[in-house]
Every structure is written in C-alpha cells, then in structure tokens.
Simulated scan of single mutants.
Amino acid sequence: MPPRAHARVAGDKHPNRRSGAAHRTGGLQHDNTRHTTRFTVIGNHLAQHPELSLLAIGLGTHLQSLPNGAPADIKTLAARFPEGATRIAAALRELEAHGYLRRERVRTPSGRIVTRTISCNQPAAARRPTEGASPAARAPREPRAEHTPRGSSGSRASREPRGRLLPAVPRPECHVPALFQAATDLLADLRRHDSRLLLSADDTAHLAPGVAAWLERDVTPAAVRRALTADLPPEGLRRPAALLAHRLAAQLPPPAPHRAPATAPPAPVRYPMRNCDGCDRGFRSPHPGALCRDCRTDLQEAA
C-alpha cells in the first residue's frame, strides 16, 4: 500500500521558499565583515556619484586611502594602474571639477616649484578658508546665469534647493600672495561698477583663484573686469557668484606667449689706433697703412 501523501505546506512556510525581498529579486546581497584595521571610510556621495565615471570614482577612492605625502602624480598612478596616463589624467580632471581634488603649484623655500595634490573627502562640507584655497560655497551646480524674472516675488528664491557648490574656477600655476590679493581687491570692487555684483566673503574667496589665474596670464585687471561685467542679464541676478565662476572658467584666455628676453645690442667694434701715412695723424682703422678721412678727401679732389 503506497504511503500517505503529506499535506501541502501553504504560504511562506514552505521550506524551499524564502521570505521577504530575497525571493523576489536576484539583486546584490552583502556578506560583510566589520573592519578593525587598514580601512578607509568612503562617502556614498563619491562611491555612488551620478556624474563621475567609474574610473574617476575608483581613482578618488584610491587617493583617499593614501597617506599624507604619498606621490599622486599622473606618472606614478599610470605605473600603478593599467589604464594609462591619458585616462588617468581625464579621471583626475573629473575629480577636480567636482571638488574631490585640488592641485596647487607652490614654491618651496629653496625656490623650486612643486605640485601639491589635495584630496577632499567631502567637497560639499563647509571648509575654512586656507591660503591659496577657497572654501566651499553654496550655489547652483549648473554653469549658467540665474536671474529673477521681472515681476516675480522673493518666495521663489526661498524654494530653491540649497547646499550645492559653486562651479569650479581655474587656478593659477603658482601661488603668489600678491596675485591673490589683487584678485580679491578686483572682486570686491565689482560692486562699484554694478551694484548687483555684491559678493559675500565666501564667494570672493572661491572666485579669487580664478581671477588670479587670469592675472597670471598677463590679462590686465581692467580686461578681467570687462569680461566679468559685460552683457549681464537686465533682470536682477539671483546668484551672481555662479555667473562669475562660469565666466572665469569658460572664457579663460590661453597662457601668454613666451617672450625671449631682450638681448643687448652688440658692442661697437673698436679698431686699433694707426697713424695716417699722409699726415701722421692718429686715427682708428682696420687696415694698416690707411689714410685718414681728410687725406682721403684731398687725394680724391686732386684726382
């Protein structure tokens, strides 16, 4: 006689049926062990960045794991990874554009110019101003001029999202304090030319490296001022610092052409002193036995 059939186990109590989301999807599952040594904390804003490439995310993670003083130039990274110098350079530019990386050229006490690479683990966090570096400022990410349409009320501005960074600005090749001071003075003076360009201290500190990069390329302060204030929208500017940051980056002129130092004119040739064969007068001449100018004139007239 055949054995009795077992009653069917209904619902989620079936032993081969998993409960929850695990039986509905084959997505990622984690098998994690807590780190106690040799680990780096990486923010999801980098690991899941919506605009950075996978190479840039990986390179940013690698840079944040390095100790202070570790070499981070393109040559060293290209020797460490198989992607090559071109792709690594592009990834570094991505990180720099989104605030995860800053590269500054500084002069050492011995007079040598070196590149200092600074990795930022939280670009969106408020930072204190440091020498040659700008603090994070809140402003729209998109590089476009923003203005308030005529007849609109201030309630629209209050609904704008906050906490976004100003567009990145170029940086000078060398950190020269006098150049940064001139850039800061130029930005603070813009309000005298257009009252809408009244900038905060944080905005000025963010924009100053961009103006310094222009001044470093032999652009006069008057030309920089014209580039920043020309053709402004007739409506009221809602975030003037975002517009100025975009102009500083988009209209950056090329470096000034190299000019060879002016050479001194050749020294005049001084011929030796000789005595004229006609009148025994002393004069300078390259040829021995020559006549002075007066004797040559007399000889030509006699002929």
Results as ranks from 00 to 15, higher is better:
residue 195 S to R: 12
residue 196 R to D: 08
residue 221 P to N: 08
residue 224 V to S: 02
residue 15 P to I: 04
residue 52 L to M: 04
residue 171 R to E: 05
residue 28 L to E: 12
residue 131 E to P: 09
residue 112 R to M: 09
residue 57 I to P: 01
residue 303 A to R: 10
residue 23 H to V: 10
residue 120 C to P: 00
residue 213 A to N: 06
residue 159 R to K: 14
residue 85 A to Y: 07
residue 13 K to S: 14
residue 143 P to R: 13
residue 12 D to L: 10
residue 42 I to P: 01
residue 299 L to W: 09
residue 156 R to S: 08
residue 33 T to C: 13
residue 4 R to K: 11
residue 268 P to S: 04
residue 58 G to F: 01
residue 192 R to K: 12
residue 190 L to G: 04
residue 235 E to I: 03
residue 151 G to E: 05
residue 146 E to N: 13
residue 172 P to A: 09
residue 296 R to Q: 15
residue 209 P to T: 06
residue 97 A to Y: 00
residue 253 P to L: 02
residue 194 D to T: 04
residue 264 A to K: 14
residue 217 R to V: 13
residue 186 L to K: 06
residue 232 L to W: 01
residue 191 R to T: 12
residue 287 H to G: 06
residue 180 F to D: 08
residue 46 L to C: 03
residue 228 L to G: 02
residue 202 D to Y: 02
residue 220 T to N: 06
residue 187 L to P: 04
residue 38 R to D: 15
residue 300 Q to V: 10
residue 203 D to G: 14
residue 33 T to F: 14
residue 208 A to H: 02
residue 293 R to S: 11
residue 121 N to H: 09
residue 207 L to E: 03
residue 57 I to R: 15
residue 291 L to P: 02
residue 132 G to M: 03
residue 8 R to Y: 12
residue 224 V to F: 00
residue 78 A to Y: 01
residue 257 P to E: 04
residue 191 R to V: 14
residue 74 I to W: 00
residue 253 P to Y: 00
residue 129 P to E: 05
residue 185 D to R: 12
residue 55 L to M: 06
residue 192 R to M: 11
residue 190 L to C: 07
residue 81 F to S: 00
residue 43 G to K: 06
residue 105 R to Y: 04
residue 248 L to Y: 00
residue 188 A to W: 07
residue 59 L to G: 00
residue 234 P to L: 11
residue 291 L to H: 08
residue 291 L to M: 09
residue 178 A to N: 08
residue 291 L to Y: 06
residue 276 C to G: 04
residue 188 A to R: 12
residue 89 A to N: 08
residue 159 R to N: 11
residue 164 R to A: 12
residue 271 Y to W: 15
residue 275 N to W: 02
residue 27 G to L: 12
residue 164 R to K: 08
residue 167 P to N: 08
residue 176 V to F: 05
residue 258 H to Y: 13
residue 229 T to G: 05
residue 300 Q to K: 13
residue 153 S to G: 15
residue 221 P to A: 10
residue 96 E to T: 00
residue 206 H to T: 10
residue 303 A to M: 10
residue 229 T to Y: 03
residue 7 A to P: 09
residue 300 Q to C: 05
residue 149 P to K: 07
residue 144 R to V: 15
residue 233 P to Q: 04
residue 173 E to S: 10
residue 119 S to M: 03
residue 181 Q to I: 10
residue 26 G to V: 09
residue 44 N to R: 11
residue 40 T to E: 04
residue 11 G to C: 07
residue 8 R to D: 11
residue 60 G to W: 00
residue 230 A to T: 11
residue 270 R to L: 09
residue 260 A to E: 11
residue 122 Q to T: 09
residue 238 R to K: 05
residue 58 G to L: 04
residue 76 T to M: 06
residue 62 H to R: 06
residue 169 V to Y: 01
residue 300 Q to T: 12
residue 6 H to C: 08
residue 222 A to E: 11
residue 257 P to G: 07
residue 281 R to V: 08
residue 211 V to G: 03
residue 7 A to Y: 08
residue 206 H to N: 08
residue 24 R to L: 15
residue 84 G to P: 03
residue 24 R to A: 09
residue 190 L to N: 06
residue 119 S to R: 05
residue 182 A to Y: 01
residue 165 L to M: 11
residue 3 P to V: 13
residue 24 R to I: 06
residue 15 P to Y: 05
residue 298 D to T: 07
residue 30 H to I: 13
residue 75 K to C: 05
residue 96 E to H: 01
residue 117 T to P: 01
residue 96 E to W: 00
residue 106 V to S: 07
residue 29 Q to T: 15
residue 247 R to K: 07
residue 1 M to A: 15
